[in-house]
Structures are given as C-alpha cells and as structure tokens.
Design a protein around this nucleic acid. Structure first.
Ligand SMILES: [Mn+2]
Ligand SMILES: [Mn+2]
Ligand SMILES: [Mn+2]
Ligand SMILES: [Mn+2]
Lengths: 140, 140
DNA sequence: GTGTATTTATAGCCTTGGCTATACCTGATA
DNA sequence: TATCAGGTATAGCCAAGGCTATAAATACAC
C-alpha cells in the first residue's frame, strides 16, 4: 500500500472515531432514560441530570436533542419517554455495555476499573468487535 | 450500597469519560505530529490536516491548543515541534495504541477492525486496564 | 530578482455540550 | 383555595471542534 493510501485510511479511522463520539452522549442518555423508566416508572429531568452528573439545563438540552433525533418524546414538566427507536437503541447499548465490562474482567481488569473504562470504551466498539467479544467470552 | 451512592458513582463514571474525551484529540494530534517528525523530519500543517482528515484551519486551531497546553511549539510557516512533555505523551499514546490493537486481535477481532476501533477505544483505557492488557498478552 | 504557486494564517460562521441566573409551572400543604 | 417549594424551562454566556472564504507569507521557477 502506498503512503498516500495509508494516510487516507488513517484519516478514515479518525473520521469514524469522531462519528462514534457524536453518538456517545445520545447513547448514554437513552440508556439512562431507559434505566430510570424501568426503576421508577418515569424519567424526570432532575434525575437524568443528577445521574449524568451535569446541571439541569444541560440535561434539558440533551433531551431536546434526543427528541430532535427521534429517540425520545417529552411533555413539559412531565418527564421523558422513549420512542420505539429510542428503546431499541437503549437495549442494544445496555447489552454492549455489559459485554464490554465482561470482556474487560475476563482479560484481568479489576471490576471497578472495568466499569469506569467501559463507560467510554463502549461507544467505540463496532458490531464486529462486539461479536468477537461475545465469541471470546463464550469459548472460555 | 444505597441507590444514592450508586447514582453518585455513575455520575463520576460519566465525568471521567467526558474528561478522557477532552484529552482524546490532543493525544491523537501529538501522536501524529510525532509520526510525521519521525517519517519526514518535519510536521507541516497541511500534512497534519490531511492525515487527520480535517480542513487546514481546523489543524491550525488544534495546533494552537497543543501550544497552549505546553505540548508543542510552532514557528509560523515552519512546521510543528513537540516539547519534551509532548514527546513523552506521544510515546505513551503510541504504546497504548499498539497494546489496544494487540489485545483486540488477541481476543479474535479482525486486524482491520481492530485498527478502526482502537482509534477511539485507546483514549478510554486507563493505566490499570493497560497493565491488565499487557499481562494478558504476555501470558498467552 | 520578479512573479507565481503553494502553504499557512485569519476571519467569521455553525453545532455541541458545558455552565449560572432567573422565570415559570405544578403539586402538595396549610 | 391560596401559598409556596420544587422541578422545569429559558436566556445568555463560554470553549471546543468543525467548516468556507480569503489574506498573507513563503518557496520556487524563470
Ligand atoms: Mn458510555
Ligand atoms: Mn454505558
Ligand atoms: Mn485515537
Ligand atoms: Mn491512536
């Protein structure tokens, strides 16, 4: 492969990482809303904010983006709900989160550390990599 | 552990992921500048931009941030250089990148995919996790 | 040395994701 | 039912990281 081709490939890798990053917050919010709905039957802005560790207006703005992207609905002063698409995403994201943590633990990462690092790592784990992780965990 | 404690812990995880994210770009730029210096003896803005897959003013601005953070120096129209701190960071980042790719391949991820995913994953791999990866790779 | 091509810098715009301060609903209490 | 506390929305600010268009500086060819 020519040097120019390698350079193009590298640029693509960075572009993909940027793309994954722009999805990361959406994924975490959707997963969190899903958790709150399951735990408390509702997802209030205040709870979302405190669980994310951000100020309340920051959570409000994030939920606005979820709505814009068709992942959630919200009635003012009434809490946040997931669309079918949002709920499906939440399920995928939660499963991936668990697999990443399990893989990290399986290769010797302390559980506490695995949970910490997984929160960032998960968003960059592609379907192929996820499949490999599951295969590895099964065949142990 | 109480529900409130778990919530605080989760907020901390998200905060850590945000922090890692704010370092990610710096790390990639520093590693790239180091690569270009090794390969061509100089790191020009145009080369940085094309390898990162961004427009030239975007690279110029990123380099400005590297300078601000004490990781690089640059003389206008003359290319970019790394400070001792920047060079040391580049070495750590490059080593971590390689370990992450090796670990992914070791658990069955195709090489191509490993390179793609590693570009994002690496920035969320803590020292403890990195150590576990190295241990795992050694003991195979 | 002059003129042109290339490279870099600058200006100005946008979106995202933070924040604080403050206005506005709503539900519970008195 | 009137009040008020708590929760939510809104306004307005900031920094980072993208972009395009354009000015300025350098390098190169003649
Ligand atoms: Mn996450
Ligand atoms: Mn997660
Ligand atoms: Mn990277
Ligand atoms: Mn890298």
């Amino acid at each position: 492969m020519t040097e120019r081709d390698e350079s193009l490939q590298q640029a693509d890798r960075f572009a993909r990482a940027r793309e994954a990053q722009s999805m990361a917050l959406l994924e975490d919010y959707v997963e969190l809303v899903s958790d709150l709905l399951a735990e408390h039957g509702e997802a209030r802005i205040a709870d979302i904010a405190s669980r994310m560790g951000v100020a309340q207006p920051t959570a409000t703005k994030a939920v606005a983006r979820l709505k814009r992207e068709g992942l959630a609905t919200a009635r003012p002063y009434r809490g946040v709900f997931l669309t079918d698409e949002g709920a499906a995403l939440a399920d995928r994201v939660r499963a991936r989160h668990r697999t990443v943590v399990a893989l990290l633990i399986a290769v010797g990462v302390p559980e506490e550390t695995a949970e910490l690092d997984a929160e960032g790592i998960e968003h960059h784990v592609s379907d192929r990599t996820l499949a490999a992780f599951e295969q590895f965990l099964k065949g142990r």
